[in-house]
Simulated scan of single mutants.
Amino acid sequence: MIKNHAKSIEEEIKNLRKTIHMNPELGGEEFQTQALIIDYLAKIGVDEIRKSADTGVVGIIYGSSEGLCVGLRADIDALPIDELNEVEYKSKVPGKMHACGHDAHTAILLGAANVFCKMRPFFNGTIKLFFQPAEESFGGAKRMIEEGCLENPHVDYIIGLHVDNSIETGHVLYKYGVMQAMSSGLQIKVKGKGCHAAHPETGVDAIIIASKIIDGLQTIVSRNLSAFDPAVITIGKIQGGTVSNAVAEEVVMNGTIRTLSEEVTAHISKRVNDLVTNIARAYGGSAEVAIRPGYIPLINNDEVVTLFKGLAEGFLGKDNVHDKVYPSLGVEDFAYFAKARPSCFWNLGIANKEKGITAPGHNGNFDVDHDSLYYGVVLQTLTALELLKK
């Protein structure tokens, strides 16, 4: 029944994805996307619809009688990237593009909502739909939770997905335990003493100090952590000096720290502070370190993953359901939902080499094989309805 319902709206869901793709909005600006979501949910008969976190949406669908409550989440924001694809549904907004598949996530959840509405007489409990803004920027998940989206009614389980261009349409990835990393923003300000380039002995070169700090930071991962604790420290931006014939007085560096646990992040943060301040002091300067906490690690619940895995194997076949052996050091703010409730976050294959759909996310050539949307709708619906039976 679920597969038949999903197949009957397949073209509708593909068109929804195309419409959303043509009209991308950045985090905190998703008003047009929000309006589209609200209009569609109202059209298909969702019982309750309300705004959340300014540009997000929460929808509620009641089954035939009381029971558990399962939430499903889709992020809805786009990226500040120019689209390079020449397709009929190309972004109409210069400098903005759905280059990470959030348009597909939104279309899939709208499709699942449609199927849930058709199946009201056949399930007990409640379905909650979370259309979340700002995953790519300041994070909407935590704000939606703080505004009470997991209560009234109380949510018992949550499921979410992300499209994955590393696997073909019809395939999925699951992961027990930690699936995505946590990330912290890092800023280092190095203070030296400016002077004429002809007389460097009269100053303190902040650029020299910065270069030594960059070298030193990489020894934290290689010498202060176990080989079984994955971590990445990246300096991605450096600004220093004002003219070519003067020793730089100040350098500002910005980067990230990525790990799979809060404990490792705390250890790295302490080592960064110690290393940076001591290197700067050794070269006659000083330095300030600011570490800004970002998203927490995304940790799946084993019980919910096992349920999803079994349903996926029954639907797609065991050969098309793959264990994601290693977690990603990318971040995902579904992590806040997963911390609050038992959850499963999984990856949906959207690549199609025959159609030339192979570009990675956050790339101007990124695209989604529209045939993959059907699989997303079916698996999200199957998993949610099975969780309601627990």
Rank of each mutant, 00 (worst) to 15 (best):
M1Y: 13
N4F: 13
A6W: 04
K14T: 11
K18N: 09
P24M: 09
Q32V: 12
Q34V: 04
A35M: 10
L36Y: 12
D39Y: 06
R50N: 10
D54V: 15
T55G: 01
G59S: 06
S65E: 15
C69F: 04
V70T: 02
R73P: 01
R73Y: 07
D77I: 10
D82F: 13
E83H: 06
N85C: 11
E88W: 15
E88M: 07
Y89V: 01
Y89G: 03
S91R: 11
A99H: 05
H102A: 00
H105R: 05
I108F: 08
A113T: 00
A113R: 02
N114L: 10
F116T: 02
C117F: 07
C117E: 10
R120L: 03
R120P: 02
F122H: 11
F130P: 01
F131P: 11
Q132D: 08
S137W: 14
G139C: 03
G140L: 05
R143C: 14
V155F: 04
I159F: 03
L161W: 06
E168M: 14
V172C: 05
V178A: 07
I188P: 08
C195T: 15
A197N: 14
I208C: 12
I209C: 05
A210K: 08
A210L: 12
Q218M: 07
I220Q: 04
R223T: 04
A227Y: 11
Q239E: 15
G241Y: 03
T242S: 15
V243I: 13
N254D: 14
N254R: 14
T256C: 09
L260V: 01
E263A: 10
R271F: 04
N273K: 12
N273A: 08
T277N: 11
T277A: 05
I279N: 06
A280R: 02
S286A: 06
E288N: 14
I291T: 04
R292V: 15
P297R: 00
P297S: 07
I299C: 11
I299A: 12
N300L: 00
F308T: 01
F315Q: 05
G317Y: 12
K318R: 12
K324W: 14
D333N: 10
F334T: 06
K339P: 05
A340W: 05
R341P: 00
F345T: 06
W346H: 00
A351Y: 09
K353R: 12
K355M: 05
K355L: 13
I357M: 02
T358N: 07
P360C: 05
D367Q: 07
H370S: 13
L373D: 00
Y374N: 09
V377W: 07
V378T: 01
A384L: 08
E386M: 15
K389Q: 12
